[in-house]
């Protein structure tokens, strides 16, 4: 395991969301006309207005079943823009989870997590061990571990960074 992979541990305050949170809630269609920085200010505008002003850098998001159902829009970039450190959910939509991996946002599916976390409690998610600990209550749960190659992509900051390193993509000139 590389140093970067063993470093995939994020601790922060939890924001708790429900089941079937969809991509259009997180990244509204009208915000697709905006830059990532601007679009991030509109996350959850329909279902949790004002949340982008409340979330602090390092906070973690906790979701329910089928988290991220919907479109391919790059929602993890908006979470990263707001400083969110990672997402733990009961279950992810696979397109959304792949987006997290490919944009380098730590994400972990852990069944049973939601009833173990109240909003505002502190969590530590540990990707190499596929565990999440509620450090407020001391309870710890385990999810399914990613294979090493996926951990490497997340640790490297996503697939675009890897493509840059492999000489397949020019260094960022127009990100945004």
């Amino acid at each position: 395991m590389t140093a970067a992979v063993s470093d995939l541990r994020r601790c922060g305050r939890a924001w708790v969301f429900g089941d079937e949170v969809n991509t259009d809630e997180m990244f509204p269609g009208f915000a697709m006309k905006m830059s990532i920085a601007e679009a991030a200010r509109h996350m959850f505008n329909a279902t949790r207005p004002g949340w982008p002003d409340l979330v602090q850098p390092g906070d973690l998001v906790v979701g329910g079943r089928n988290f991220g159902m919907g479109s391919s829009r790059p929602v993890p970039l908006l979470f990263k823009e707001l400083g969110v450190g990672g997402i733990v959910a009961e279950e992810f939509n696979s397109l959304f989870l792949r987006n997290c991996v490919n944009y380098g946002l730590p994400a972990l599916a852990v069944a049973g997590i939601r009833e173990k976390v109240a909003e505002g409690q502190n969590l530590c998610m540990d990707l190499p061990n596929a565990s999440v600990e509620n450090t407020t209550t001391g309870e710890k749960l385990y999810g399914g571990a990613f294979p090493e190659f996926i951990l490497e992509i997340i640790a490297g900051g996503g697939v675009l960074a890897k493509l840059e390193n492999d000489g397949l993509l020019q260094k960022a000139s127009s990100e945004g």
Binding site: S72, P74, R98, N99, N102, V159, L160, L163, L169
Partner: peptide
């Protein structure tokens, strides 16, 4: 990148939507 790429399943293809970064990876 369109999430409704699964439409191609009607034509017996393993078709699915993927994120924009991943599509760039496949392009390369």
């Amino acid at each position: 990148t369109d999430s409704h790429t699964c439409a191609g399943g009607a034509l017996n293809a393993a078709a699915r939507g993927l994120g924009p970064a991943e599509i760039i990876q496949i392009l390369c």
